[in-house]
């Protein structure tokens, strides 16, 4: 068991190095390579952090959903660890989205926050998964915590499409901000900007897996310590 854990620990530095290099490349692309946007100026560069963070948080919440289903199906601690780790990483990146968004919006829209459909969706998502983490913190380690968290992980993700449509129709009377629709790939986007966005997306995805690897390892080490403690107590 210990050997296995050690081997996994050896495997992760490769991923960490790849992530570090990818992030370095993304930084070079964002701050040196990509041209400054004509109307928005330098502040537009935050988009290369904002969109990848949003993508990673959605990916993370999807992983929580899948792991939760697999946990309830197979009842293996492994899946509970994945769900927990992914929820933590997801909340981290969702927080980044909520921080980088207003920084960009203040000079461009003239307001820190607008009750636009996407902003509302992100905020509600953040609240759902913070509640998920609170639920985990409230219960003692064990099968009960894992089962409860899994139920919430499933319910939370299934709710996302419903929330999406409700906030979309809620603000249907207001015109959608032009800047957000032009974020769609393709039309009118400079190839250099598109390339930078994709480098950044790749780098953030690597970062997600690197953080996940670390977090999962940490949780497994914690389990090992608990087991060793229990063994030591029993042998006394």
């Amino acid at each position: 068991m210990n050997e296995e854990a050690a081997r996994e620990g050896e495997g992760s530095p490769v991923l960490i190095w790849i992530t570090a290099l990818a992030l370095l490349a993304a930084m070079v692309a964002i701050f040196i390579y990509v041209p400054t946007e004509k109307t928005e100026g330098a502040v537009q560069r935050i988009m290369y952090f904002h969109i990848p963070s949003a993508w990673v948080s959605f990916l993370a919440f999807f992983v929580v959903f899948l792991s939760s289903i697999l946990f309830l199906w197979k009842k293996e601690r492994e899946w509970d660890i994945y769900a927990h780790a992914s929820a933590e990483v997801g909340v981290l990146f969702c927080t980044l989205v909520l921080i980088t968004g207003p920084i960009w919006a203040r000079p461009i829209w003239g307001a820190w926050w607008v009750w636009d459909a996407r902003l509302t969706l992100t905020l509600v998502l953040w609240l759902i998964y913070v509640a998920y983490l609170m639920l985990r913190a409230q219960t003692d380690a064990g099968s009960m915590r894992a089962r409860y968290a899994a139920v919430l992980g499933i319910a939370g993700f299934l709710d996302i499409p419903l929330i999406h449509f409700s906030v979309l129709w809620w603000r249907a009377f207001h015109p959608l901000p032009k800047v957000i629709t032009s974020e769609g790939l393709g039309k009118g986007m400079d190839p250099a900007m598109l390339a930078t966005l994709f480098i950044s997306l790749g780098a953030f995805t690597c970062l997600y897996f690197a953080l996940m690897g670390q977090r999962v390892n940490l949780e497994k080490l914690r389990d090992d310590i608990d087991r060793l403690k229990k063994d030591a107590l029993d042998s006394d």
């Binding site: 509600v124 609240l127 759902i128 509640a131 609170m134 639920l135 919430l152 319910a155 939370g156 709710d159 419903l162 929330i163 449509f165 409700s166 906030v167 129709w169 809620w170």
Partner: peptide
């Protein structure tokens, strides 16, 4: 309420 209200958003708005 902390668990329930964020998930209730679609029904509340609707």
């Amino acid at each position: 309420p902390i668990l329930l209200y964020p998930l209730m958003v679609p029904v509340v708005i609707g």
